[in-house]
C-alpha cells in the first residue's frame, strides 16, 4: 500500500514555474493544459517566492523546476546557487526557461547542474513543444528522494 502511494506521487511530480512575466506564465499554463498537467503546476514570481514554496512544511517534492533568468529580487542564477547550496533541495532537476541566449548566462546555468536550457522564443512559439517535452520528461524520468535536511 505504502509502495503504491509512493509510485503515485512519483508519477505526478509537481512542476514549479518560476517567472515574473504574467503572460509567459499564462503561456506555460496553456501548454500544460494541453497535456493535462495543469493541476501539478505551482507558480512563483521570483527566486525568493520559489524557495518559500520548496521550503514550506508540506514542501513540494519531487518537483521539476522551470526557471526564468531575468527576475526581480532573486534572479534565476542566484536562485540556482541557493538551491544547490541547500542540502535538502540540491537534487531538484531544473530546466532554465529564458529569453536570454547570452553565452555567459547559459554557461553559468549549466555550471549549476541544470537539466537543460530552453529558449522561450523556441519552445513557446507554439503550444506543443514545451508541453511534449515536459510531459515526456515527467513520465519517463525516475525521481530522486528528498535528502534529509
Amino acid at each position: 500500500m505504502m509502495a503504491v502511494r509512493q509510485m503515485e506521487t512519483r508519477s505526478s511530480p509537481a512542476i514549479l514555474l518560476v517567472d515574473d512575466d504574467d503572460i509567459d506564465r499564462l503561456a506555460v499554463r496553456r501548454c500544460l493544459r494541453k497535456v493535462a498537467l495543469e493541476n501539478s503546476l505551482i507558480e512563483a514570481r521570483d527566486g525568493v517566492e520559489a524557495l518559500e514554496h520548496l521550503q514550506a512544511d508540506e514542501g513540494v517534492w519531487p518537483a521539476l523546476i522551470l526557471l526564468d533568468i531575468n527576475m526581480p529580487r532573486m534572479n534565476g542564477l542566484e536562485f540556482l546557487q541557493a538551491l544547490r547550496e541547500n542540502v535538502a533541495l540540491k537534487r531538484a532537476p531544473v530546466f532554465v526557461l529564458s529569453t536570454s541566449d547570452n553565452a555567459c548566462d547559459m554557461a553559468a546555468a549549466y555550471d549549476q547542474m541544470i537539466a537543460g536550457y530552453l529558449l522561450k522564443q523556441d519552445v513557446l512559439s507554439d503550444d506543443s513543444r514545451l508541453a511534449e517535452l515536459v510531459s515526456s520528461y515527467t513520465s519517463n524520468v525516475a525521481w530522486p528522494d528528498k535528502p534529509d535536511a
Binding site: 503572460i23 529569453t99 522564443q121
Partner: peptide, 13 residues
C-alpha cells in the same frame, strides 16, 4: 522583446 513576445503569445491565444 519581452512585451513583443507577450503580444505574439496573446494574439496566438
Amino acid at each position: 522583446r519581452a512585451p513583443l513576445r507577450a503580444i505574439t503569445s496573446l494574439t496566438r491565444f
